[in-house]
Design a protein around this nucleic acid. Structure first.
Lengths: 195, 195
DNA sequence: AGATTATCTGAACATGCGTTCAATACAATA
DNA sequence: TATTGTATTGAACGCATGTTCAGATAATCT
């Protein structure tokens, strides 16, 4: 036995990344073996090496793709305009985007330590870029006198931590709709930065 | 060779827990071997089994001890009194306590997935108990009309996420002292719940 | 001093790991 | 239909894993 009927790299490639994302998020990078990923896809472990040079690169590619998605999605979603409206847009965007891909979000702040120095630095830079997007909004609002922030950098980190926390408790079909969650968090954020 | 001079369970026991805590936090539970922990202590792997029945229990004991510490420390620190003062006490306590033991904090919200169902439930119950401490303060303040919270439960989770986020960026000897961080976060929390 | 108990070693167990590679079967092209 | 290139298997590599245990030594007790 060798090549399987219907086999195609455009099919197997994504399936491997999907399986790896799901399993890494569920059990942790180190706890998941290449054989488990292969089994999930329905393939032998050796076949994975047609799609990734090694296990760490597989993780890195997932994290990199997630961060690229995040930045591109925000840049497309950014309403611009006045700082208050822009901040509201950011809050609702962040919650919505993160709730749509909980596994990737979980991975990208839990498994950074499994990356080598170079890969780690690359992901960190993207994360910092995203933080800067919010920081700029806060700084603009501070300059315009609509926000009162003793420390813009810390406010940035505090808001992102608060918003990302939604992923730890939100369950589909629970008491609150995604939109309702957006309302609640926007209410708190708006007040916390108010002049 | 067998028993070593100066050997004592009251010495080796804590050293094993310290080494395990440090290594688990640094590299992740699954990525750390019993032999690595033993080497850090200066002992052979077999000796660890005088102190723990297995690896998972070692992790559980660390998480359990941390949560017990947390609850006991807050109960001793709770200033009582008016909701606003109590909330301020909680904010400053949470930041201070967490910054004093970053490894344990990291572990207890990153490695829960490596626990079996029963152990997981035990830790979750303790976490919920801690959340209830804050929720009660918020509910009291809401009742007294000093806080305005559309959803007390969500506000609880949002505040805890925001405060716990400090551990992801704070570095000893950095720009801000711990007290200054407490001031900044109390400012944001105070405003976010204000009536 | 002698007996007992607590502490640790070192080797062993079966199992699983990430990764490589020759062989092979299917898909695409001509 | 023949040929070339792509996708995959399955076995193998050396090494690491969690855990057990008989044997050995140090500390403690009588």
């Amino acid at each position: 036995m060798a090549r399987k009927t219907g086999s195609h790299s455009e099919i197997t490639g994504p399936r491997i990344r999907d399986a790896a994302l799901k399993l890494f998020a569920r059990h942790g990078f180190a706890a998941v073996s290449m054989r488990q990923i292969a089994a999930e896809v329905g393939v032998q472990a050796g076949a994975l090496y047609l799609y990734t040079p090694d296990k760490e690169t597989l993780l890195f590619d997932l994290l990199k793709a997630h961060m690229d998605d995040l930045l591109a999605a925000w840049d497309a979603d950014d309403p611009g305009g006045a700082p208050v409206a822009r901040l509201e847009g950011f809050v609702r965007f962040h919650i919505r985007f993160n709730l749509e891909r909980p596994d990737a979000v979980f991975l990208s702040y839990m498994e950074l330590r499994n990356l080598g120095a170079a890969n780690f630095a690359a992901i960190e830079a993207l994360r910092k870029t995203y933080e800067t997007r919010l920081e700029t909004i806060l700084r603009d609002g501070q300059g315009a006198g609509v926000f009162a922030l003793p420390d813009t950098k810390i406010a940035t980190l505090a808001i992102i931590a608060m918003l990302t926390g939604v992923n730890t408790w939100y369950r589909e079909g629970g008491r609150l709709s995604r939109a309702a969650v957006g309302d609640l968090y926007w209410d708190m954020v708006r007040k916390s930065v108010a002049a």
